[in-house]
């Protein structure tokens, strides 16, 4: 069985982003550090567990992005992926989910993946689109929000549970090949084993130039980045820490929320 896991590299903290309001653009700042999207960590872990159950499966990890993304692919190798694929873009130009899905599809076509796993969303864009779009482009079945999976004994179908509103679960069976967009909490991601860390250090990543892949024209354009909508005009309590605590206690008592 061949399993592909799509991993995205995201910034660690949105506090390091730089907003140019006049230009309507957000860029990474000098202190921005990058790591694997947390939802993809669950997808990778699930792929590794499927491999352990089957014994003879191969797990490839793929990421799309500029050279810095190589580090996240190497992280996937440290965690236990067999092979890393880097679809390399030239610059920091923001790619839509549509672009990413088509790049991943173009890079993975013909490789005979039985199962493609991705996180349910990326923490930065929160679009929840790459998994299902990739399925549509490849002509695979798809389930999103997957919180449980079990391959059939013959390896031709997979039973999944999708987590829906309020924590209910929709149960379904999909024929392979298919794409699963994995919900967080499906497992507990592991720490890397030393042997894998050593192997990952010297492993060769397969590099594919994004510009060499045929991708349809974009479906959307970014007009601009805006500041957040003005929400409730709440009050920020000022003062020293002790004054803030006293003010809050006063407010809560006034509203009979805290016993006097």
């Amino acid at each position: 069985m061949k399993i592909l896991v799509c991993v995205k590299q995201v910034y660690d903290s949105p506090e390091t982003l730089v907003f140019d309001e006049a230009a309507g653009r957000v860029t990474f700042g000098p202190h921005t550090v990058f790591r694997m999207n947390r939802y993809d960590e669950y997808a990778l872990e699930e792929a590794l567990r499927i491999r352990e159950r089957l014994g003879d499966a191969v797990v490839d990890a793929l990421s799309v992005g500029p050279p810095r993304v190589g580090k996240t692919i190497r992280r996937a190798l440290e965690l236990g992926a067999n092979h890393g694929i880097h679809v390399q873009t030239r610059d920091e130009t923001c790619l839509s989910a549509f672009d990413r899905a088509h790049l991943i599809a173009a890079a993975s076509r013909g490789r005979g993946y039985d199962l493609v796993l991705a996180g349910i969303m990326a923490e930065d864009d929160m679009e929840s689109q790459v998994g299902p779009l990739l399925a549509a482009v490849l002509g695979y079945g798809c389930a999103t929000g997957v919180i449980f999976e079990e391959l059939s004994a013959d390896g031709r179908e997979i039973a999944v549970e999708r987590e829906v509103e309020g924590g209910s679960r929709e149960c379904l069976s999909l024929a392979l090949p298919c794409v699963l967009a994995i919900q967080s909490g499906i497992n507990t991601p592991r720490y890397p084993a030393l042997s894998h860390v050593l192997r990952a250090r010297s492993a060769e990543l397969e590099c594919i130039e994004a510009s060499s892949l045929a991708v349809p024209p974009p479906t959307q354009s970014l007009v601009c980045i805006l500041p957040p909508a003005q929400g409730r005009q709440g009050e920020i309590i000022e003062g020293t820490a002790a004054e803030k605590a006293d003010t809050l206690i006063h407010i809560l008592r006034e509203h009979s929320l805290l016993p006097r």
């Binding site: 949105p14 982003l17 907003f19 309507g24 957000v26 989910a97 549509f98 923490e123 930065d124 864009d125 929160m126 679009e127 929840s128 689109q129 779009l133 024209p217 974009p218 479906t219 959307q220 354009s221 970014l222 007009v223 601009c224 980045i225 805006l226 500041p227 957040p228 909508a229």
Partner: peptide
Amino acid sequence: CITAVEDAGEGTFIRSLHHGRFRAEVRAD
């Protein structure tokens, strides 16, 4: 396809990103 839309502009759609710190105004092509 544009997901998690929370407002509409002049022929555009607006959605949050980056943990709700910013919004993106997007036009469909």
